[in-house]
Amino acid sequence: MVRYTVRRLLQAVPLVFGAAVVTWILIHAAPGDPIVALAGEDGDAGYYAMMRERFGLDRPLHEQLFVYLGRLAQGDLGFSYRQNRSAVSVILDQLPATLLLMVPALAVASVIGISVGTLAAARKNSALDNTARTATLLGHAVPVFWLSQVLLLLFALRFDWFPVQGRSDARAGYEGFRALLDVGHHMVLPIAALVTVYVPPIMRVTRAAVIENLDEMYIRAARARGQSRRRVLIRHALPNAMLPIVTVIGSQIGFMFAGSVLVETVFAWPGLGRLLLSAILARDFAIITAMLLMLSVTIILMNLITDLVYSLLDPRVRHGT
């Protein structure tokens, strides 16, 4: 097991560097000059040259790439000249705000997705099943940013139940418990929008996995021994189905971040989405590369964790392809 883990970790290293090289090259090959954004308008040529030299942007690209990879090997993901701090610290500053939306949305979506998915599986092709599947597919087809706008128009503007933007009331300056309530109030609409896009994959996978497991031999055997259907479902099928569900959540992390960015944009929620967009506008290369790389690493880690869990359960994986 330890050997397997070590092997997988070692395999992940070139993957991380591969991802780093690809994103770095893509970003730096693009037209656009970070100095323009850094300097503001109306700089003269000499001014620009001076700025470029300062930030090492006058060196050949491949040299810059080697410098970058060298620093990366030491765990340095770059320095944001615009924010005047390390890129990682900027990103970590914004991460909680994004997680504040994603985690509760994911929790709610999991509860809904798993329970409805299980019920639907238990009554395959019933009215409930069909309704749930259709709703899911619809949830999948509606663009999340559009849905967010509709929610905003209805519940923030028309009914005036919720604020239209931000994470807190800027004027009130609440403290303590009131502040928490205030943030919660601001969270409702964005989370509602996110839940609708998080539920479908979870529900679908749950349903599929449970159906599959219900078919498995041992469950048939269990039923043959006279256990009730309900009991079989709860005792055997669902726990077995949990793994693939965990896999989805893990593997959909990129998708979930994407949804979050769009929702953040509509509700002017200060999080990673805003950070990325403003970094792009400013050609803040360090932030962009660091953020893409951190996403890649997250995906790699999620894969790894899932693999390890699987290998614990199913030794074949360890020796398999």
């Binding site: 800027a170 509509v266 002017a268 805003r274």
Partner: peptide, 23 residues
């Protein structure tokens, strides 16, 4: 006090003004 609230989208700024969330 003056609070500068970052709202990137102009349309959202307008909505926030109309709703009294910004001045």
């Amino acid at each position: 006090r003056v609070v500068m609230r970052v709202i990137p989208d102009q349309n959202t700024q307008v909505l926030a003004l109309e709703e009294g969330e910004v001045d």
